[in-house]
């Protein structure tokens, strides 16, 4: 990726296209953030739920744990905010 060449490329684009690209890149950044969140959550929930040796498939309890893990994590952050707001007010 040669930077100068890319710069020339961007400059030659009309304003509407530049805007369109800016919007596109913002969307991709949102996607990247979502992916990062899912990576973090997978790591966390793996540690919590996959506690026995690795089988050919997840046990029923491991599968349920993974699903619950996501929802309880989100509940936790929601509750935490609510609790802090109540304490403050």
């Amino acid at each position: 990726m040669s930077a100068p060449q890319q710069q020339t490329g961007a400059e030659q684009l009309d304003l509407a296209t530049q805007r369109e690209l800016a919007t596109f890149i913002e969307q991709e950044q949102t996607k990247a953030k979502l992916q990062a969140t899912i990576h973090d959550m997978t790591s966390m929930c793996w540690d919590k739920c996959v506690t026995s040796s690795i089988g050919a498939r997840f046990s029923k309890s491991e599968g349920t744990c993974l699903l619950n893990c996501v929802d309880r994590f989100l509940d936790t952050s929601k509750y935490l905010v609510k609790h802090l707001e109540e304490r403050r007010g």
Partner: peptide, 18 residues
């Protein structure tokens, strides 16, 4: 097995989260 399971976990969690 572990790589298969990890990928599965990633997909399960991704779906649930979204």
């Amino acid at each position: 097995r572990c790589t298969e399971r990890y990928l599965e976990a990633f997909n399960v969690i991704s779906k649930q989260y979204v």
